[in-house]
Design a protein around this nucleic acid. Structure first.
Lengths: 257, 257
DNA sequence: CGTGACGTTGAAGAAGGTCAACCAATGTGG
DNA sequence: CCACATTGGTTGACCTTCTTCAACGTCACG
């Protein structure tokens, strides 16, 4: 991992992301863009936030794939969220610095580290920013809820299909067509940790999706052959991702001055 | 379900709960106590917040047990959280009114309904209140993360033991002793929905906990015979519940005036 | 060209699900 | 006050899904 000071316009995608569900004024957007941050490059499979550790900064993912996970006493991992560029994998740490989940790079990744103190100051000054951050955590929790349903109440094939649907939707890899594909660096072992299965069974399950003509996962890439079919197999309904919040539905805690 | 207007000091336990992890001034506490609310009584097994429904108020649980759940396309439920008195089962709805989880009473329950608008006004006016609410959501998400680990990476006996440990800890039913007990109205079917098992297997698993001399669940009550043993069987570490936040560790987003 | 990470496959077994029957407690209407 | 239904809990027999263990293939890279 290397660190370097940087003041590029990197946070713009974070602002865009917040504004997809919240309403911010130009002043508020600028306050976020002005947040101090340092760039860091993370190697594949490196745990860069450890379980139980206290942090004084939050991470913003610029590129790559990050898994958030917990583990049982045998050290077996359970991935609870897969984060994509634009996400803040541990935004919650702003109000809860002791990290109850660990973060692992599933591929090489580039992150920005933003000091909690700076985020807290902006949130204290602009209630609408605090609200937008709180909302981002709420969406994260909604995805987490679905993850529980996925792991608890679906069989292997359905679980994996659901996960692929979720990633395809969040990565905006699907349009109206039947086919789609996207880069996805996670290994079968990562998928096993995410679905609560073994790598062996993930392998067989991928095979069955492939043979059913639904999708294939290989060489860091997911190919979807039959999007409606995959959604059906995965029992997938994209509503929970809250991607379709129309401008007039977006809430704002304080009036726009 | 019956509704009645009420202005008793019911919200005091909510304030106490927030202050166990956050720092609030007397003025801020009073603003929360002054929140308008209506009392409602809910019958057992009634879904009082439905999936996908939009709400304009958050619920505060005064008495009883509430399950938050999602479900798969077959209608099989997966409980993602069990809420106890003092919890706000859908606090997140303040920033995210479309409910992505449903709420079901697991016993007769008494709730207070608090309009979103009122909560939003207090949060906009007092950044520290917004922070405290945000933190409450973060703790809720931390519990949810553990729930994923529980369902994804532990076997039936371990899962159930973990759940009992979590409930015992949150209900403050355990002290330093070996034994403990607490009222717990959930049925075996509810436990099955919570653990992602079938009722039949929950029944057998309870039997095995009983025969191992660890704990028993029956007649709306949990008896713990061997607390250290149950914690070991459930792979349980209470840290994630954030119950031990010392006053000097509590964060505050804005200075105390 | 060896070594390690990742993927693939087969055989055997364990954990948990399914189906079905039955019991005990409680409530209800005649 | 009894006949009956309902809800929650218990148990057995059987079957499916997933795990475990072990071997082997393949590709990238030093």
């Amino acid at each position: 991992m290397s660190e370097a000071s940087d003041t590029g316009p990197d946070l713009q995608i974070f602002v865009d992301r917040l504004c997809s569900r919240s309403v911010l004024t130009d002043e508020e957007k600028q306050a976020i863009l002005d947040l101090p941050h340092r760039v860091a490059h993370i190697k594949t499979n490196r745990d860069f936030v450890k379980l139980g550790e206290s942090t004084d900064h939050a991470c913003f993912l610029l590129s790559g794939l990050i898994g958030r996970f917990g583990q049982n006493s045998e050290g077996e991992r359970q991935i609870t969220a897969i984060h994509i560029p634009g996400d803040m994998p541990n935004l919650y740490s702003v109000v809860q610095p002791e990290s109850l989940s660990a973060l692992q790079a599933l591929s090489v990744a580039t992150i920005l580290r933003i000091p909690h103190q700076a985020i807290r100051e902006v949130a204290a000054r602009y209630p609408a920013v605090a609200e937008a951050l709180w909302r981002d955590c709420a969406v994260d929790a909604a995805i987490l809820s679905q993850w529980v349903v996925n792991v608890g109440r679906r069989d292997a094939k359905c679980r994996l299909a659901h996960l692929l649907c979720e990633m395809a939707t969040r990565l905006e890899a699907v349009d109206d067509g039947k086919e789609a594909h996207f880069a996805f660096a996670a290994t079968q072992a990562h998928l096993a940790d995410a679905t609560g299965l073994t790598t062996v069974h993930v392998n067989r399950t991928i095979k069955s999706l492939r043979e059913a003509g639904l999708a294939d996962v290989r060489a860091g890439r997911v190919d979807i052959f039959d999007w409606p079919g995959l959604m059906a197999a995965g029992d997938f309904d994209a509503d929970y991702l809250q991607r379709d919040t129309e401008p007039e539905e977006r809430l704002r805690i304080a009036p726009v001055p």
